[in-house]
Amino acid sequence: MTVLAPRTVDELERILADSPDHTILSGGTDLMVEVNLHGRRPTAIVSLRSVEELHAWTFDHERVTIGAAVPYATMEVGELAGLVPALAQAARTVGSPQIRAAGTLGGNLGTCSPAGDGLPVLSALEATVHIRGNGDRRDVPFADFMVGVKRNALRAGEFVHSVSIPRVDGWQGYAKVGTRNAMVIANASTCLVRDRSAGRVRVALGAVGPTILRCPEAESWLAANSDLRGNTPPSADVRAEFSRLVSQASRPIDDHRSTAEYRRHAVGVLARRLLERSYQ
């Protein structure tokens, strides 16, 4: 039998240490597309289905920790959605309900597509990726985890155990543009977090660069030019300049889904609208 189904994280770690070429299977929504359509022929598979620890999520007053194998459907509604609303909003846009019942944040991180819907949220919330493998544990900030188009910081024998997301005093939201009203890959997406205690916003952009992009210039400029702690929204001029700076931070390309020009425009609009929403 070449599909292994470990029950514990230790067991999983041992399997991958012995055979780092085993393919990790979580929800299957990326891997099986590769197998069905793109000629990928795994010879041995480790399924995360029975590793209960990876299917759990916890929280305390500082952070929410989500196991790598928790499906998006769990993030969309209920308590977890209340704790990380931007993630809930992003989860709701992932593929179809069927995909959300299977697909996981661990899979999003494993694949590391710039259009991965969960990733801008992890970026803007400055999440930490907890990695296991080779008898070791590493905590990698999301910013250092995604290193390129479909490339991440995982080494042979390693796997994503969980992601922890700091709880923020403030507002968070996610918006995504596609050319239909459901089940669509992002042409551009934006997550905005307004951290009231820090008096800052954090903005992360999806599908407009080789990795998820943060917008440090736009973030700093806005912090310097408006009151992000209070309830008074920035002026229209300030919002417009913020929008322009966000667009400027994007590095989109033309492809069959959209154009660079549109994507650049869209993230600016989304960031401005999210900022406005954060005051509603």
């Binding site: 070449t2 099986m32 597309v33 459907a73 593929g95 019942a101």
Partner: peptide, 30 residues
């Protein structure tokens, strides 16, 4: 063949999923 049409929907352990994206050998205990 890639979870974009729903024609292959089945229920696995109480979840409605696309069976084209389920590796058959991985759902032996479901």
């Amino acid at each position: 063949e890639q979870g974009e049409c729903g024609s292959c929907t089945v229920v696995v352990d109480g979840r409605a999923v696309c069976s084209c994206l389920v590796l058959a050998a991985s759902v032996v205990d479901t």
